[in-house]
Amino acid sequence: MAHSGINVLFSGSNFDRLLVGLWTSIWIAALSIIIGLLIGTIFGVLRTMPNKIIRCILRVYMEIFRILPSVVLLYLVYYILPRSLHINWPGTWMAVLAFSLWVAAEFSDIVRGALQSVPLAQKESGLALGLSKMQLFLYVLLPQAFKLELPATINLATRVIKTTSILMLISVMDVINVGQQIIEANNQKFPTGVFWVYGLIFFFYFILDYPLSVWAKSLMAKQK
């Protein structure tokens, strides 16, 4: 009985449609991670600077994202952008915006922590060579910080990938939304199709995230 449902995956263009949906999730995650890491690096560096006001603002920014669930963040962007700011973007862009801001907040904290754990002596020996502040960050502090923070960054990436599952809430045609459509369309013919479609999506997410978390874990074991 249940095994007949597997056919739903391969009837018509269903499998291809699921892959297209998956690709949407992947590029939204990838783009958000890239943008978020860039902004987060700048915020993280600023959070190690002496200026108290900037530090305080960025701290509050980070804490807001720590308090709010990503679903809520996504809906804030989804409703505020068009209704209060009259910006009408497609759902995919709004998702990239929400996720990027979230990644930036989390990454700023990772960068700050890593920068602070680079020994002070490294900073001084850079200064003693006449490096400017910018050069010091670019060639000495940030490369060392990135190495320290790589496992945490990979873990953040796995969370972003998992969080793309909420894209369906704002009607983005992601892998889950496509899956639901396929399930509804084939409910009569394949009543157990739901099992296979969600099973496949479960598997998709697992093969995206599992290698990354294994990588992060092995890096962490090496750092010990």
Binding site: K162, Y205, D209, S213
Partner: peptide, 15 residues
Amino acid sequence: RNTPLLIQLFFLYYA
């Protein structure tokens, strides 16, 4: 750890 809660819930509730 490597799958989203959302799809875990869909499995439990719909599948």
